Simulated scan of single mutants.
Amino acid sequence: SFFNYSRSNQTLLSALNEDKVVLFLHLLGIDTNGHAHRPNSREYKENIKKVDEGVQEIASMIENFYGNDGKTAFILTSDHGMTDWGSHGAGHPSETLTPLIVWGAGVNYPQKVTSQFFEDNFLKEWKLGHLKRLDVNQADIAPLMASLIGVPFPLNSVGTLPLEYLNNSAHFKAESIFTNAVQILEQFKVKMSQKKKTTLSFLFTPFK
């Protein structure tokens, strides 16, 4: 209905056809379902199937709206996992490891490998052992998104741009990671200055 409405609303249509448009979808249902029914329940697995089909439908809808022009990048992730009994907040891998799936414009294709070294069994469970797994920190997703749409890295971002996700020139990657380093350095300088002001001078020891 949102896309259909834009066809009769010139202001919305113009906004949707600008450069660097971000469509953010928060799919809350799985989180609520996991807390209510636990991750191994029939209800939870049915909900995953429904959301999976929904993501496919939404991705197709977006591609169709933009005439399949190949200029859209998609990022699918989660803020947290949960235990078998439907809780989170500790440091167990089931709570802290989340999926990150990226595809579309500016994104590298999966790379085939013959061996990988991970202590967990996720690749085996997912039947993806033949593809290179690229783990990142959650904070790294912000600079990745910024790079894909061509905007400056968020001012307070502490993430490192995951270069292997990008399908771009070596020059672009070099400029991007340099800019990323400068942005993080400036943030460090501000934090160090703030720390100096609130710490007695004889106690303050800057990092080497």
Rank of each mutant, 00 (worst) to 15 (best):
E119R: 05
V151I: 15
L23K: 14
T205Q: 08
E119T: 05
V136W: 04
G104W: 08
P152T: 10
P152A: 11
G29W: 09
H171V: 04
I184K: 12
F3H: 04
S94H: 09
V190Q: 09
L76M: 08
L76E: 03
N47C: 14
K132I: 08
F172T: 01
L128W: 06
L203V: 01
H80E: 07
D52Y: 04
P93C: 00
M82H: 10
K189I: 15
K208R: 04
K195M: 11
T205V: 02
F153G: 11
P206H: 00
I101A: 05
T198Q: 09
E63M: 01
V55K: 01
G150Y: 10
T179W: 05
S8I: 09
N4P: 12
K191Y: 07
F204N: 12
S60A: 10
D69W: 03
V190Y: 09
A142R: 00
A90R: 11
P110S: 06
A90S: 13
Y66W: 14
W126N: 05
L203S: 03
R7L: 13
F204D: 07
G150S: 09
Y5E: 15
M82Q: 11
N47Y: 14
G91H: 13
L185M: 13
F122C: 08
F178N: 15
G150H: 11
L13S: 15
H35L: 11
D52E: 02
I141P: 02
Y5F: 10
S157P: 12
A15H: 11
N156F: 10
H26R: 08
L28W: 13
S157T: 12
S157R: 10
T179Y: 05
N156S: 13
P206W: 00
G106T: 00
N108H: 02
N9T: 10
A142L: 06
N121Q: 12
Y5D: 15
